[in-house]
Amino acid sequence: MLLKNISKVGANNLKAFQYRAISSRFNSTLVLIEHKDNVVSGSTLSAITAATKLGNPVVGLVAGENPSQVIDQVSKIEGISKVIVAKDAAYEKPVAEIYTSLLLGVQKENNFTHLVSGHSAFGKNILPRVAALLDVAPISDITDVESADTFVRPIYAGNAIAKVKSSDSVKVITVRGTAFAAAPQGSNQAEQTNAPAAEIPTLTKWVSEEIVKSDRPELSTASKVISGGRGLKNGDNFKLLYDLADKIGAGVGASRAAVDAGFVDNSLQVGQTGKIVAPELYVAVGISGAIQHLAGMKDSKVIVAINKDPEAPIFQVADYGLVADLFKAVPELTEKI
């Protein structure tokens, strides 16, 4: 069939035809770069590592009003072969409709086989919209890459692990940050090109944000995390955890119960519906260990539970469990550490 088609085209066109045939078979992966305050997000660095496992050249897409520092950072990351740059004030805030328009334009020009981002609020918001408009089924929150079309992802709050194979021509993927190491900075200098001008939809206006300021390490990338639950009784008592966290350089998290009770801000929530963490050390204080919470932390290397209820389900996953009153045990721990 293919040969027959080729025989129909003139000798001069044959070369162009072959070139097109080759270039359309040339696989490559686009990673949508998330950044804030001129720094590439941790989940993006993990997504780049996942992307390199697909075995194809990896291209970064950096969008923003003036993202020059981010472009510099991305072009030095090991495994990045090219950086596509979209500079426009419209890209300063992550409005899904605007980013979708940009991504569709970039995809049309480049025919990537894979579009990838971190499974953060940013990536979760944008990539499914892009996938729908490409008429492909996106694959969320992957934890492993088996091959260029087969991926592993948790379902049922991490209580089952599914291996799925995509039959779509373009794979649209979000990556669980804690499942892949961050891509390291290298000494390379990837080439840069500009993204094609995209139409900028005006359906949605970004109004404002309320970001919780903290000097502690960012929860989803911290190597140690101390989390509090309903057992803390009120927000003021979280000071016990902050003291311990500051002493060992840990991030502070919370269970949904603690967030719903108003003890701390919901951006600290660890669980299926909050952040997924996998630190070296996770200390659960006054947390019973509901399925929802376990989904967010059970891949931590070492889990410690401090709870006065010896029957609390958290003890079943804890490497070290201490049955004690947290109001005595935590200050003692802080003092002796």
Partner: peptide
């Protein structure tokens, strides 16, 4: 998408208790 396999997550060897801080 075709689901090739669904399996249990790896089990954690938890459950050890300590007596004191």
């Amino acid at each position: 998408l075709t689901t090739l396999e669904v399996k249990e997550p790896p089990k954690r060897e938890g459950g050890r208790k300590v007596e004191s801080v």
